[in-house]
Amino acid sequence: MLKDITIGQYFPGKSIIHRLDPRIKIILIVAFIVMLFIADTFFGLGVGMVFVLGAFLLSGIPFKMMLKSLKPLMPLLIFTGLLNLLFIRTGDVLFKWKFLIITKLGVTTAAFMIIRIVALIIGSSLLTYTTSPIQLTDAIERLFSPLKVIKVPVHELAMMMTIALRFIPTLIEDTDKIMSAQKARGADMETGSIIKRAKALVPIFVPLIVSSFRRAVELALAMECRCYHGGEGRTRLKQLKTSFRDYAAIFVTAVFITGVVFADKINFFI
């Protein structure tokens, strides 16, 4: 049951998208989001879609995975669609029944919003599919390092994130073990009222919290033994480097943003 949870949906690979500098990738994703929001015609949105789908193809991630990332956000998509469909009451009326009014503008806005959100999800899941969690935190640390000037503990926050990610599988394993052990003593977690089931969680949570604290103490000690003392003067094994392909990616993105602006203009003339 617990094994089915996948966190950090990194999909290892060697494509050009995988090998981009993670910092650049994050910046480009932000640029992509801006791209989607300056597009206000279907043409412009289409250009954005071509951009993200092209990147997806380059990354070699199975198409199936893209659909999988959309699935959990289905309710949000449907909700947004319905909201726009039912509450936009200006424009040509297509359908009218009692208090329900569906207008042409409503339909186009709903479609527009849905496409925009889908593109957004595809873009951001592409980032997590092609960048390992460690690379991501590394990049975030670097990108936010200017904030150190105003005393934001950037390194410490990034380290916390790294540790949290590292321990998710461990804690899942611990939970699994404790659950089995309590089940072996006849703990019943599947039947009964909500209150009874909530009470049945006590034998799971208490040992889990105890073991998390134990792990935290051990980890802190191990880190101190290796002379960890925060980010001050710390060097890294894997240096982040921007190379030709990163500049190429920036160039391509810039071209597409211009493309979006032009596509919007063209739409006006037609």
Partner: peptide, 15 residues
């Protein structure tokens, strides 16, 4: 209840 199973490091199940 018929087959009692004591896991490895069973002290981690105390609560």
């Amino acid at each position: 209840f018929k087959v009692g199973l004591v896991f490895q490091y069973p002290e981690y199940q105390l609560f």
